[in-house]
């Protein structure tokens, strides 16, 4: 369980990082918090030729609130998000969900941008961003661009990120006073990847956004359930999940995921605040 040989570089600027990542011969991969990539390398599932460590890039750190938007640097760590008053006030959903992300040691290193770029189907962050109508900002040698979270997560570990691009910033609309949030997940042990989980934003009796994780090949919005909620409340929403592309795993067959997704949704609604 030793990683194959690789070259390690720690650039001092985004420009330098992008130049390093553009060298396709080197098979370069950006290193964020390393909480997924390093184990994958040690298991020899991933074998990048060059690791471009983004941890030295101050430009990618920190968060600020401006014009009703919370702008979070991609290299901001879970622990920093959890400790932030700005996050607590403006993105209460993070406060509900992030304690479920792995364990303290992992939250001390893991970054929001790393989770976005990896797009693990059972991770919490992508579903939260779907529900929050967040925007993912990216930068490559060709320039910068931004994409709605909804268009970013394309499949199993598959995103809209192009070769050589890195995630630079996550932009989340600050909470409106009318909005409430809910979160619930089923994990065999605290901190495990979820068997089924859901995040909710409720804008009123006729409006909600529902994002599931751990049930399909990616974080996924349950748009039919959102519509059903408007018409028939929570029971209707629970009953409108059959069209989601449930995928089974070691802990739960697709049918079990379908069942747990409904229960999680009910409990998330019960717990909204």
């Amino acid at each position: 369980m030793k990683a194959p040989d690789f070259v390690y570089v720690r650039p001092g600027s985004i420009a330098e990082a992008l130049a390093l990542l553009a060298d396709t011969d080197a098979d370069a991969t950006p290193l964020a918090g390393g909480q997924s990539l390093m184990p994958m390398m040690n298991f020899r599932v991933a074998a990048p030729g060059k690791l471009v460590d983004l941890n030295g890039l101050a430009e990618l750190r920190g968060l600020r609130v401006e014009n009703g938007m919370v702008r979070i640097g991609a290299m901001t760590r879970y622990a920093e998000l959890l400790a932030s008053d700005d996050i607590r006030e403006n993105i209460p959903l993070f406060g509900l969900a992030l304690p479920h992300v792995a364990h303290a040691a992992i939250r001390n290193r893991g970054t929001i941008g790393g989770s976005v770029a990896l797009a693990d189907p059972a991770a919490e962050i992508p579903a939260l961003l779907l529900v929050l109508e967040a925007e993912i900002h990216m930068q490559g040698l060709a320039g910068t661009r931004a994409i709605a979270a909804e268009d970013f997560f394309l499949g199993l570990y598959e995103t809209a990120l192009q070769e050589g691009e890195i995630v630079t910033e996550i932009v989340v609309p600050a909470r409106k006073t009318t909005e409430q949030f809910g979160f619930y997940e089923f994990a065999r042990r605290h901190g495990d990847y979820a068997m089924a989980g859901v995040a909710l934003k409720v804008g009123g009796p006729d409006h909600c956004r529902i994002g599931f994780f751990g049930v399909a090949d990616r974080a996924i919005r349950a748009t039919r359930a959102e519509v059903a909620y408007r018409d028939g409340g929570v029971p209707a929403a629970m009953a409108a999940l059959d069209d989601l592309p449930f995928d089974g795993d070691l802990n739960a067959a697709a049918k079990t995921k379908r069942h747990l997704a409904g229960i999680a949704l009910k409990r998330a609604f019960e717990g909204i605040s």
Binding site: P39, F43, R188, R189, H190, G191, D192, Y193, L250
Partner: peptide, 27 residues
Amino acid sequence: YEECVYSEDGQLLNATMADYLVPMAGE
């Protein structure tokens, strides 16, 4: 919690600490 899960053809499917569930203090 704990189970060595095999496929029908004898492949151990959960040979990592993420997938093999040892009991943890929290539970």
